[in-house]
Simulated scan of single mutants.
Amino acid sequence: MNKLNLTVIATAIGLVFSAGVMAQSMSKDAYKAAEDRITAEYATDKAKCDSLSGNTKDICIAEAKGKENVAKAELEVRYEPTAKNRYNALVAKAEADYAVANEKCDDKAGNDKDICVKEAKAVETRVKADAEAQMKTSEANKAAGEKSAEASKKARAEGAEARQEATTEKVDANYAVAKEKCDSLASGAKETCLNEAKAKFGK
């Protein structure tokens, strides 16, 4: 995934947790009807995979399941627009994208496949880490708004800590990708590559 797409995702995460985009809750009947539609759509999508074979079929099934999981998570946001549900929706999207990307990696072999898997996992890790940081910051700010100035100070500290944790997780994911890329090199070049990766990511 390129930097532009990651920027778009990061922007979307920020918008999802902003107060201005909180969805209106829906009725229980509307929720049940939407849930039934999601289940029916998944059955239809999965049936389309039956005529396929091999990894193409696996990718198709992963796409169908991912679509269902994302739709269910987004439905929960519409039904009960809490910070936790919005976070779960972002996680569902990240996991769905990873599942499909991981299946597509099966079309590769050797170190190319290993790199593909690590890169897919790194993208998932980055998105989930940012989503978690935003959720923690949002919840801390909400709690602080209901309490004292001391609580506001604590909320800022918790937000900073959450962002630092997200940064650490993303660095670790990127380092894992860099190490995997080094594995395709010969001994001397591999050692140099690993040392450069360690220096770059502070390991």
Rank of each mutant, 00 (worst) to 15 (best):
A96L: 05
K28M: 11
S27A: 08
G54L: 03
T82P: 08
S51D: 09
R37H: 03
K72Q: 14
K84D: 13
L4Y: 01
A94W: 03
A64K: 11
P81Y: 00
K65E: 13
L75H: 06
D114L: 05
V100S: 05
L6K: 13
E119I: 02
I9R: 15
A101G: 11
K118N: 10
K72T: 07
D45C: 03
V8N: 10
V100Q: 05
F17R: 08
V91P: 09
K72D: 11
D114G: 01
D107I: 07
D97G: 06
G110D: 09
L75S: 03
E41S: 11
I115K: 12
G66T: 04
K65Q: 14
E80N: 14
E103T: 09
E95V: 07
V16L: 13
K108D: 05
K84F: 11
D107T: 13
G66I: 08
C60R: 11
T39I: 14
A34D: 11
D50E: 14
Y31Q: 10
D45S: 14
A96T: 00
V91M: 05
G66L: 12
T82Q: 07
K93W: 02
L75M: 04
A89R: 10
G20A: 11
V8G: 05
G66Y: 08
V123S: 10
A89C: 11
V117F: 02
G54V: 03
M22A: 15
T82A: 07
I9T: 15
N5C: 04
N88Q: 14
T7H: 06
E35N: 12
L75W: 01
E41G: 02
A92E: 06
K57G: 00
T11S: 11
R78W: 01
S25D: 07
N85D: 12
V123P: 05
E35R: 13
E35H: 08
S25H: 05
A120M: 05
E103N: 10
R37P: 02
T44F: 03
N88Y: 11
K32H: 04
S27R: 08
V70N: 04
T56W: 01
V100Y: 02
T56E: 13
D97Q: 12
D29Y: 01
C60N: 04
I13Y: 05
V8P: 02
T11A: 13
V77K: 09
K57N: 01
E35L: 09
A120V: 02
C49P: 08
D29N: 07
D58M: 09
A19P: 10
C116E: 07
Y42Q: 14
K84E: 15
A40L: 05
K3N: 04
L75V: 00
R86Q: 12
T39F: 07
V77D: 03
Y79K: 14
K72P: 11
F17A: 04
Y87P: 06
K113W: 03
T39P: 03
A62P: 09
A40D: 06
E80F: 06
K84Q: 15
K104D: 02
S27E: 03
A99V: 07
K57V: 02
T39A: 15
E68P: 01
